[in-house]
Design a protein around this nucleic acid. Structure first.
Lengths: 207, 207
DNA sequence: ACAGATATCCCGGAAATCAGCCATTTTTAA
DNA sequence: TTAAAAATGGCTGATTTCCGGGATATCTGT
Protein backbone atom coordinates (compact mmCIF):
# COMPACT_ATOMS: atom_id res chain seq x y z
CA UNK A 1 0.00 0.00 0.00
CA UNK A 2 1.22 3.45 -0.89
CA UNK A 3 0.84 5.79 2.05
CA UNK A 4 -0.09 9.28 0.86
CA UNK A 5 -0.21 12.43 2.95
CA UNK A 6 -2.31 15.41 1.85
CA UNK A 7 -1.42 19.00 2.66
CA UNK A 8 -3.80 21.63 1.31
CA UNK A 9 -5.75 24.44 2.90
CA UNK A 10 -8.75 24.14 0.59
CA UNK A 11 -11.28 21.73 2.13
CA UNK A 12 -12.97 21.26 -1.21
CA UNK A 13 -9.76 20.35 -2.97
CA UNK A 14 -9.00 18.01 -0.11
CA UNK A 15 -12.36 16.32 -0.65
CA UNK A 16 -11.58 15.91 -4.32
CA UNK A 17 -8.15 14.45 -3.63
CA UNK A 18 -9.45 12.00 -1.06
CA UNK A 19 -12.15 10.99 -3.47
CA UNK A 20 -9.67 10.50 -6.26
CA UNK A 21 -7.27 8.46 -4.19
CA UNK A 22 -9.98 6.32 -2.64
CA UNK A 23 -10.63 4.93 -6.10
CA UNK A 24 -7.05 3.66 -6.26
CA UNK A 25 -6.71 0.14 -4.94
CA UNK A 26 -3.09 0.45 -3.88
CA UNK A 27 -3.26 3.86 -2.22
CA UNK A 28 -4.20 4.80 1.30
CA UNK A 29 -4.48 8.30 2.68
CA UNK A 30 -2.27 8.53 5.75
CA UNK A 31 -3.48 11.93 6.83
CA UNK A 32 -4.79 15.34 5.81
CA UNK A 33 -3.46 18.69 6.98
CA UNK A 34 -4.23 22.26 6.11
CA UNK A 35 -1.08 24.03 7.28
CA UNK A 36 2.58 23.65 6.46
CA UNK A 37 3.50 23.42 10.11
CA UNK A 38 1.15 20.57 10.83
CA UNK A 39 2.12 18.88 7.59
CA UNK A 40 5.83 19.05 8.32
CA UNK A 41 5.33 17.45 11.68
CA UNK A 42 3.09 14.79 10.19
CA UNK A 43 5.72 13.83 7.64
CA UNK A 44 8.09 13.07 10.52
CA UNK A 45 5.58 11.09 12.49
CA UNK A 46 3.65 9.24 9.82
CA UNK A 47 6.53 8.62 7.40
CA UNK A 48 4.34 8.52 4.27
CA UNK A 49 5.63 7.34 0.90
CA UNK A 50 4.26 10.34 -0.97
CA UNK A 51 3.13 13.82 0.00
CA UNK A 52 0.72 15.82 -2.12
CA UNK A 53 1.72 19.33 -1.18
CA UNK A 54 -0.11 22.53 -2.05
CA UNK A 55 2.59 25.07 -2.80
CA UNK A 56 0.51 28.06 -1.71
CA UNK A 57 -0.18 27.52 1.94
CA UNK A 58 -1.21 30.27 4.31
CA UNK A 59 1.55 29.78 6.86
CA UNK A 60 4.69 28.45 5.16
CA UNK A 61 5.97 28.96 1.65
CA UNK A 62 5.86 25.68 -0.26
CA UNK A 63 9.43 26.05 -1.43
CA UNK A 64 10.73 26.52 2.09
CA UNK A 65 8.70 23.53 3.16
CA UNK A 66 10.27 21.30 0.52
CA UNK A 67 13.71 22.42 1.56
CA UNK A 68 13.00 21.75 5.21
CA UNK A 69 11.81 18.25 4.44
CA UNK A 70 14.90 17.55 2.35
CA UNK A 71 17.15 18.95 5.04
CA UNK A 72 16.02 16.16 7.32
CA UNK A 73 17.27 13.67 4.72
CA UNK A 74 13.79 12.36 4.17
CA UNK A 75 13.37 10.30 1.05
CA UNK A 76 9.65 10.89 1.01
CA UNK A 77 8.42 11.76 -2.47
CA UNK A 78 6.84 15.19 -2.77
CA UNK A 79 4.31 16.04 -5.47
CA UNK A 80 3.77 19.77 -5.64
CA UNK A 81 0.27 21.03 -6.37
CA UNK A 82 0.05 24.58 -7.63
CA UNK A 83 -1.96 27.07 -9.63
CA UNK A 84 1.14 28.70 -11.09
CA UNK A 85 2.24 27.65 -14.52
CA UNK A 86 5.25 29.90 -14.89
CA UNK A 87 8.68 28.50 -15.54
CA UNK A 88 10.49 30.26 -12.68
CA UNK A 89 8.01 28.95 -10.17
CA UNK A 90 8.16 25.40 -11.49
CA UNK A 91 11.95 25.41 -11.57
CA UNK A 92 12.18 26.78 -8.08
CA UNK A 93 9.88 24.15 -6.69
CA UNK A 94 11.74 21.32 -8.41
CA UNK A 95 15.08 22.68 -7.28
CA UNK A 96 13.78 22.70 -3.74
CA UNK A 97 13.38 18.97 -3.78
CA UNK A 98 9.94 18.21 -5.20
CA UNK A 99 9.57 14.99 -7.22
CA UNK A 100 6.66 16.20 -9.28
CA UNK A 101 4.68 19.26 -10.26
CA UNK A 102 0.99 19.13 -11.05
CA UNK A 103 -1.30 22.05 -11.72
CA UNK A 104 -4.53 22.19 -9.81
CA UNK A 105 -6.49 22.34 -13.01
CA UNK A 106 -4.92 19.11 -14.21
CA UNK A 107 -7.11 16.05 -14.45
CA UNK A 108 -7.02 13.52 -11.64
CA UNK A 109 -5.13 11.02 -13.77
CA UNK A 110 -2.11 13.26 -13.81
CA UNK A 111 -1.89 13.13 -10.04
CA UNK A 112 -2.03 9.36 -10.08
CA UNK A 113 0.64 9.30 -12.75
CA UNK A 114 2.78 11.70 -10.76
CA UNK A 115 2.56 9.47 -7.70
CA UNK A 116 3.57 6.38 -9.64
CA UNK A 117 6.38 8.16 -11.44
CA UNK A 118 7.71 9.60 -8.19
CA UNK A 119 7.80 6.16 -6.59
CA UNK A 120 9.87 4.94 -9.52
CA UNK A 121 12.29 7.75 -8.86
CA UNK A 122 11.18 9.79 -11.84
CA UNK A 123 10.12 13.41 -11.84
CA UNK A 124 6.71 14.02 -13.27
CA UNK A 125 5.28 17.27 -14.61
CA UNK A 126 1.70 17.66 -15.73
CA UNK A 127 1.24 18.22 -19.44
CA UNK A 128 0.69 21.97 -19.30
CA UNK A 129 3.76 22.51 -17.14
CA UNK A 130 5.91 20.32 -19.36
CA UNK A 131 4.98 22.59 -22.25
CA UNK A 132 5.92 25.69 -20.33
CA UNK A 133 9.24 24.30 -19.20
CA UNK A 134 10.24 23.01 -22.62
CA UNK A 135 9.42 26.16 -24.56
CA UNK A 136 12.04 28.68 -23.63
CA UNK A 137 10.68 32.15 -24.25
CA UNK A 138 13.14 34.84 -25.06
CA UNK A 139 13.80 37.37 -22.33
CA UNK A 140 12.06 35.28 -19.74
CA UNK A 141 13.30 34.61 -16.26
CA UNK A 142 14.29 31.02 -15.71
CA UNK A 143 14.20 31.11 -11.94
CA UNK A 144 12.82 33.27 -9.19
CA UNK A 145 15.66 35.50 -8.06
CA UNK A 146 16.71 35.04 -4.47
CA UNK A 147 16.22 38.38 -2.79
CA UNK A 148 17.40 39.37 0.64
CA UNK A 149 15.31 40.53 3.55
CA UNK A 150 16.23 44.13 3.02
CA UNK A 151 15.54 43.97 -0.67
CA UNK A 152 12.15 42.50 0.04
CA UNK A 153 11.46 45.36 2.42
CA UNK A 154 12.45 47.94 -0.16
CA UNK A 155 10.40 46.10 -2.78
CA UNK A 156 7.33 46.26 -0.64
CA UNK A 157 7.69 49.96 0.04
CA UNK A 158 8.34 50.74 -3.62
CA UNK A 159 5.21 48.82 -4.53
CA UNK A 160 3.25 51.01 -2.15
CA UNK A 161 4.28 54.05 -4.12
CA UNK A 162 7.01 55.46 -1.88
CA UNK A 163 9.93 57.25 -3.48
CA UNK A 164 13.55 56.52 -2.73
CA UNK A 165 13.74 59.50 -0.41
CA UNK A 166 10.64 58.49 1.51
CA UNK A 167 11.90 54.93 1.91
CA UNK A 168 15.26 56.19 3.17
CA UNK A 169 13.50 58.32 5.78
CA UNK A 170 11.27 55.51 6.90
CA UNK A 171 14.13 53.02 7.29
CA UNK A 172 16.58 55.55 8.72
CA UNK A 173 19.15 54.85 6.02
CA UNK A 174 20.74 56.90 3.28
CA UNK A 175 18.89 57.31 0.03
CA UNK A 176 22.03 56.04 -1.68
CA UNK A 177 21.55 52.76 0.07
CA UNK A 178 18.00 52.52 -1.12
CA UNK A 179 19.21 53.20 -4.63
CA UNK A 180 21.73 50.40 -4.33
CA UNK A 181 19.00 47.99 -3.33
CA UNK A 182 16.87 49.11 -6.26
CA UNK A 183 19.76 48.51 -8.61
CA UNK A 184 20.41 45.08 -7.19
CA UNK A 185 16.76 44.19 -7.55
CA UNK A 186 16.70 45.24 -11.18
CA UNK A 187 19.88 43.24 -11.76
CA UNK A 188 18.45 40.15 -10.14
CA UNK A 189 15.24 40.34 -12.16
CA UNK A 190 17.22 41.22 -15.25
CA UNK A 191 15.09 44.23 -16.15
CA UNK A 192 15.76 47.94 -16.17
CA UNK A 193 12.74 49.45 -14.48
CA UNK A 194 11.26 48.89 -11.07
CA UNK A 195 7.79 48.56 -12.56
CA UNK A 196 8.88 45.34 -14.27
CA UNK A 197 10.38 44.12 -11.01
CA UNK A 198 7.13 44.81 -9.20
CA UNK A 199 5.14 42.90 -11.78
CA UNK A 200 7.29 39.78 -11.46
CA UNK A 201 7.50 40.02 -7.70
CA UNK A 202 3.74 40.32 -7.39
CA UNK A 203 3.19 37.51 -9.84
CA UNK A 204 5.52 35.21 -7.96
CA UNK A 205 3.98 36.09 -4.64
CA UNK A 206 7.10 37.79 -3.30
CA UNK A 207 5.08 40.74 -2.05
CA UNK B 1 -35.00 19.61 -5.54
CA UNK B 2 -32.49 22.41 -5.96
CA UNK B 3 -30.83 22.24 -9.36
CA UNK B 4 -27.21 23.29 -9.10
CA UNK B 5 -24.81 23.94 -11.98
CA UNK B 6 -21.06 23.76 -11.45
CA UNK B 7 -18.58 25.85 -13.43
CA UNK B 8 -14.92 25.36 -12.53
CA UNK B 9 -11.85 24.44 -14.51
CA UNK B 10 -10.23 22.44 -11.72
CA UNK B 11 -11.30 18.81 -12.01
CA UNK B 12 -10.27 18.15 -8.44
CA UNK B 13 -12.32 21.00 -7.08
CA UNK B 14 -15.20 19.78 -9.22
CA UNK B 15 -14.87 16.37 -7.61
CA UNK B 16 -14.97 17.92 -4.20
CA UNK B 17 -18.02 19.99 -5.00
CA UNK B 18 -19.92 17.06 -6.45
CA UNK B 19 -19.02 15.04 -3.43
CA UNK B 20 -20.16 17.77 -1.09
CA UNK B 21 -23.46 18.33 -2.86
CA UNK B 22 -24.21 14.63 -3.19
CA UNK B 23 -24.47 14.49 0.57
CA UNK B 24 -27.32 17.04 0.48
CA UNK B 25 -30.71 15.41 0.22
CA UNK B 26 -32.41 18.31 -1.52
CA UNK B 27 -29.72 19.15 -4.04
CA UNK B 28 -29.07 17.72 -7.47
CA UNK B 29 -26.18 18.59 -9.76
CA UNK B 30 -27.62 19.67 -13.10
CA UNK B 31 -24.29 19.79 -14.89
CA UNK B 32 -20.56 20.46 -14.72
CA UNK B 33 -18.58 22.69 -17.04
CA UNK B 34 -15.01 23.85 -17.14
CA UNK B 35 -15.26 26.95 -19.31
CA UNK B 36 -17.26 30.15 -19.08
CA UNK B 37 -18.53 29.75 -22.59
CA UNK B 38 -19.94 26.30 -22.02
CA UNK B 39 -21.29 27.35 -18.64
CA UNK B 40 -23.09 30.37 -20.02
CA UNK B 41 -24.80 28.27 -22.63
CA UNK B 42 -25.70 25.64 -20.06
CA UNK B 43 -27.36 28.23 -17.84
CA UNK B 44 -29.67 29.07 -20.74
CA UNK B 45 -30.48 25.49 -21.56
CA UNK B 46 -30.65 23.83 -18.18
CA UNK B 47 -32.16 26.73 -16.23
CA UNK B 48 -30.63 25.76 -12.87
CA UNK B 49 -31.67 27.32 -9.59
CA UNK B 50 -28.12 28.00 -8.47
CA UNK B 51 -24.77 28.26 -10.21
CA UNK B 52 -21.50 27.70 -8.37
CA UNK B 53 -19.16 29.79 -10.47
CA UNK B 54 -15.39 29.87 -10.27
CA UNK B 55 -14.42 33.50 -10.79
CA UNK B 56 -11.04 32.70 -12.32
CA UNK B 57 -11.79 30.80 -15.48
CA UNK B 58 -9.35 30.42 -18.34
CA UNK B 59 -11.58 31.81 -21.07
CA UNK B 60 -13.97 34.41 -19.64
CA UNK B 61 -13.55 36.74 -16.71
CA UNK B 62 -15.98 35.79 -13.96
CA UNK B 63 -17.21 39.34 -13.58
CA UNK B 64 -18.06 39.60 -17.25
CA UNK B 65 -19.81 36.26 -17.01
CA UNK B 66 -22.01 37.43 -14.16
CA UNK B 67 -22.92 40.54 -16.07
CA UNK B 68 -23.80 38.57 -19.17
CA UNK B 69 -26.06 36.28 -17.22
CA UNK B 70 -27.80 39.22 -15.59
CA UNK B 71 -28.21 40.97 -18.91
CA UNK B 72 -30.45 38.13 -20.04
CA UNK B 73 -32.71 38.88 -17.07
CA UNK B 74 -32.00 35.51 -15.57
CA UNK B 75 -32.99 35.16 -11.96
CA UNK B 76 -30.66 32.26 -11.46
CA UNK B 77 -28.69 32.59 -8.21
CA UNK B 78 -24.94 32.84 -8.67
CA UNK B 79 -22.51 31.85 -5.94
CA UNK B 80 -19.02 33.06 -6.79
CA UNK B 81 -16.10 30.83 -5.84
CA UNK B 82 -12.74 32.55 -5.65
CA UNK B 83 -9.30 32.50 -4.16
CA UNK B 84 -9.16 36.28 -3.82
CA UNK B 85 -10.00 37.79 -0.48
CA UNK B 86 -9.49 41.43 -1.32
CA UNK B 87 -12.24 43.96 -0.92
CA UNK B 88 -12.12 45.40 -4.43
CA UNK B 89 -12.48 41.97 -5.98
CA UNK B 90 -15.35 40.97 -3.72
CA UNK B 91 -17.20 44.23 -4.32
CA UNK B 92 -16.76 43.97 -8.04
CA UNK B 93 -18.12 40.46 -8.15
CA UNK B 94 -21.14 41.34 -6.04
CA UNK B 95 -21.82 44.44 -8.10
CA UNK B 96 -21.78 42.28 -11.18
CA UNK B 97 -24.75 40.36 -9.96
CA UNK B 98 -23.48 37.51 -7.82
CA UNK B 99 -25.67 36.40 -4.91
CA UNK B 100 -22.86 35.05 -2.81
CA UNK B 101 -19.09 34.98 -2.44
CA UNK B 102 -17.27 32.01 -1.00
CA UNK B 103 -13.53 31.52 -0.84
CA UNK B 104 -12.15 28.27 -2.08
CA UNK B 105 -10.50 27.63 1.22
CA UNK B 106 -13.80 27.91 3.01
CA UNK B 107 -15.29 24.80 4.52
CA UNK B 108 -17.99 22.95 2.62
CA UNK B 109 -20.67 24.12 5.02
CA UNK B 110 -20.24 27.65 3.85
CA UNK B 111 -21.12 26.68 0.32
CA UNK B 112 -24.27 24.94 1.48
CA UNK B 113 -25.18 27.97 3.54
CA UNK B 114 -24.52 30.24 0.59
CA UNK B 115 -26.85 28.19 -1.59
CA UNK B 116 -29.63 28.29 0.96
CA UNK B 117 -29.20 31.99 1.62
CA UNK B 118 -29.19 32.78 -2.08
CA UNK B 119 -32.45 30.89 -2.58
CA UNK B 120 -33.99 32.99 0.16
CA UNK B 121 -32.90 36.08 -1.73
CA UNK B 122 -30.10 36.89 0.67
CA UNK B 123 -26.49 37.55 -0.20
CA UNK B 124 -24.03 35.32 1.57
CA UNK B 125 -20.34 35.93 2.13
CA UNK B 126 -18.05 33.37 3.69
CA UNK B 127 -16.70 34.30 7.08
CA UNK B 128 -13.26 35.43 5.95
CA UNK B 129 -14.67 37.64 3.23
CA UNK B 130 -17.20 39.18 5.59
CA UNK B 131 -14.32 40.23 7.79
CA UNK B 132 -12.46 41.80 4.91
CA UNK B 133 -15.47 43.70 3.65
CA UNK B 134 -16.44 45.01 7.07
CA UNK B 135 -13.01 46.24 8.13
CA UNK B 136 -12.33 49.29 6.05
CA UNK B 137 -8.59 49.86 5.87
CA UNK B 138 -7.41 53.39 5.40
CA UNK B 139 -6.03 54.24 1.99
CA UNK B 140 -7.35 51.07 0.45
CA UNK B 141 -9.11 50.78 -2.85
CA UNK B 142 -12.77 49.92 -2.47
CA UNK B 143 -13.29 48.74 -6.01
CA UNK B 144 -11.24 47.66 -8.98
CA UNK B 145 -10.94 50.73 -11.19
CA UNK B 146 -12.50 50.35 -14.60
CA UNK B 147 -9.72 50.83 -17.11
CA UNK B 148 -10.08 51.23 -20.84
CA UNK B 149 -8.60 49.03 -23.54
CA UNK B 150 -5.91 51.54 -24.34
CA UNK B 151 -5.02 51.99 -20.69
CA UNK B 152 -4.74 48.24 -20.30
CA UNK B 153 -2.41 48.15 -23.26
CA UNK B 154 -0.20 50.88 -21.82
CA UNK B 155 -0.29 49.13 -18.44
CA UNK B 156 0.96 45.92 -19.94
CA UNK B 157 3.81 47.61 -21.77
CA UNK B 158 4.83 49.58 -18.70
CA UNK B 159 4.90 46.37 -16.70
CA UNK B 160 7.28 44.90 -19.25
CA UNK B 161 9.74 47.69 -18.52
CA UNK B 162 9.17 49.93 -21.53
CA UNK B 163 9.55 53.67 -21.12
CA UNK B 164 7.02 56.23 -22.25
CA UNK B 165 9.00 56.96 -25.40
CA UNK B 166 9.31 53.29 -26.30
CA UNK B 167 5.60 52.74 -25.80
CA UNK B 168 4.78 55.77 -27.95
CA UNK B 169 6.95 54.39 -30.74
CA UNK B 170 5.43 50.97 -30.53
CA UNK B 171 1.85 52.24 -30.63
CA UNK B 172 2.53 54.98 -33.18
CA UNK B 173 1.18 57.71 -30.92
CA UNK B 174 2.69 60.76 -29.26
CA UNK B 175 4.56 60.30 -26.02
CA UNK B 176 2.29 62.97 -24.58
CA UNK B 177 -0.64 60.66 -25.12
CA UNK B 178 1.11 57.86 -23.32
CA UNK B 179 1.78 60.22 -20.45
CA UNK B 180 -1.90 61.11 -20.33
CA UNK B 181 -2.80 57.46 -20.05
CA UNK B 182 -0.27 56.96 -17.28
CA UNK B 183 -1.72 59.88 -15.38
CA UNK B 184 -5.24 58.58 -15.79
CA UNK B 185 -4.15 55.18 -14.53
CA UNK B 186 -2.55 56.69 -11.45
CA UNK B 187 -5.70 58.73 -10.84
CA UNK B 188 -7.96 55.71 -11.17
CA UNK B 189 -5.85 53.65 -8.78
CA UNK B 190 -5.49 56.65 -6.49
CA UNK B 191 -1.72 56.42 -6.22
CA UNK B 192 1.11 58.57 -7.48
CA UNK B 193 3.57 56.14 -8.97
CA UNK B 194 3.19 53.57 -11.71
CA UNK B 195 4.88 50.95 -9.57
CA UNK B 196 1.93 51.02 -7.21
CA UNK B 197 -0.45 50.78 -10.14
CA UNK B 198 1.40 47.75 -11.45
CA UNK B 199 1.21 46.04 -8.09
CA UNK B 200 -2.55 46.45 -7.82
CA UNK B 201 -3.14 45.58 -11.45
CA UNK B 202 -1.10 42.40 -11.15
CA UNK B 203 -2.79 41.49 -7.91
CA UNK B 204 -6.23 41.94 -9.40
CA UNK B 205 -5.33 39.97 -12.50
CA UNK B 206 -5.63 42.95 -14.84
CA UNK B 207 -2.37 42.12 -16.56
C1' DA C 1 38.42 32.33 12.39
C1' DC C 2 37.39 33.37 7.97
C1' DA C 3 34.94 33.83 3.37
C1' DG C 4 31.15 35.15 1.15
C1' DA C 5 26.93 37.36 1.37
C1' DT C 6 24.55 41.29 2.83
C1' DA C 7 23.87 46.01 4.04
C1' DT C 8 25.57 50.26 4.10
C1' DC C 9 27.23 54.65 1.88
C1' DC C 10 28.95 57.87 -2.01
C1' DC C 11 29.00 60.71 -6.79
C1' DG C 12 27.42 62.84 -11.27
C1' DG C 13 25.00 63.13 -15.34
C1' DA C 14 21.48 61.62 -18.52
C1' DA C 15 16.94 60.10 -18.88
C1' DA C 16 12.44 59.47 -17.41
C1' DT C 17 8.63 60.36 -14.53
C1' DC C 18 5.19 63.14 -12.14
C1' DA C 19 2.05 67.13 -11.43
C1' DG C 20 -0.87 70.47 -13.00
C1' DC C 21 -2.91 72.50 -16.37
C1' DC C 22 -5.75 72.38 -21.09
C1' DA C 23 -7.76 71.18 -25.99
C1' DT C 24 -9.39 68.43 -29.91
C1' DT C 25 -11.19 64.44 -32.16
C1' DT C 26 -13.21 59.97 -32.27
C1' DT C 27 -16.01 56.25 -30.19
C1' DT C 28 -19.51 54.49 -27.70
C1' DA C 29 -23.66 54.19 -25.31
C1' DA C 30 -28.23 56.10 -23.96
C1' DT D 1 -28.95 62.00 -32.24
C1' DT D 2 -26.86 63.70 -28.63
C1' DA D 3 -24.25 63.44 -24.58
C1' DA D 4 -20.71 61.10 -22.29
C1' DA D 5 -16.48 58.57 -22.42
C1' DA D 6 -12.17 57.57 -24.47
C1' DA D 7 -8.20 58.56 -27.08
C1' DT D 8 -5.43 61.82 -28.84
C1' DG D 9 -1.96 65.77 -28.36
C1' DG D 10 0.24 69.66 -25.96
C1' DC D 11 3.26 72.63 -22.38
C1' DT D 12 6.47 73.68 -18.29
C1' DG D 13 8.89 72.71 -14.37
C1' DA D 14 10.13 70.03 -10.39
C1' DT D 15 11.32 65.59 -8.92
C1' DT D 16 12.81 61.02 -9.35
C1' DT D 17 14.86 57.24 -11.44
C1' DC D 18 18.42 54.93 -13.90
C1' DC D 19 23.22 53.97 -15.10
C1' DG D 20 28.07 53.90 -14.51
C1' DG D 21 31.25 53.42 -11.64
C1' DG D 22 32.90 52.92 -6.73
C1' DA D 23 33.94 51.70 -1.25
C1' DT D 24 33.48 49.93 3.54
C1' DA D 25 31.21 47.69 7.31
C1' DT D 26 28.54 43.92 9.26
C1' DC D 27 26.53 39.72 9.50
C1' DT D 28 26.35 34.62 8.97
C1' DG D 29 27.39 30.06 8.17
C1' DT D 30 31.13 26.57 8.04
Amino acid sequence: MIKVLLIDDHPIVMEGLKNLLSRQEDVTVAGCFDTGKAGLQAIEELAPDVVLLDINLPDINGIDLCQQVRKNDKDVRIIALSVHNERPVIKNVLNSGANGYVLKNAVGDEIIMAINAALKGEIYLCRASRNIVSQVQEGELTEIPKITRREKEILSLVSKGLTTTQIAEQLFISSHTVESHRKNLMDKFDVNTMTAVIKFATQFGLI
